[in-house]
């Protein structure tokens, strides 16, 4: 299966690209896609516990099913708005 993976911010920098087509044979869930990404780009593993994910522009879970051609985005913790994110 082939999916389009999108990466942002520091995760994008660690992997070295913001957008890639990933071959993930036998993958059925977001978790499988993440595993394929980490296999190809071990640096991504730094975000294994803190990232969230979206499939085709909907927030998803690691258990969400993916299909060929889907856009799967992995998102580091967000920091929009203004001021320090932490209170």
């Amino acid at each position: 299966m082939r999916v389009n993976v999108k990466l942002f911010a520091r995760l994008r920098e660690l992997v070295g690209q913001g957008e890639l087509t990933l071959d993930a044979p036998g993958a059925t869930t977001v978790a499988d896609v993440w595993a394929a990404l980490v296999a190809a780009h071990p640096a991504a593993d730094a975000y294994a516990r803190s990232m969230s994910c979206a499939v085709n522009l909907n927030y998803a879970r690691m258990t969400t099913t993916v299909a060929d051609g889907d856009e799967v985005a992995f998102l580091p913790p967000v920091s929009g708005g203004s001021g320090a994110a932490a209170r």
Partner: peptide, 28 residues
């Protein structure tokens, strides 16, 4: 906005730069 909007702040300060990271985004 700070919880669920996928926007990231890259701070450039005197002496370096850092990605600011807050909440793990999950609209659900």
């Amino acid at each position: 906005i700070k919880q669920i909007v996928p926007i990231w702040k890259h701070e450039h300060f005197e002496g370096g730069e850092v990605w600011i990271e807050g909440a793990t985004a999950d609209a659900h």
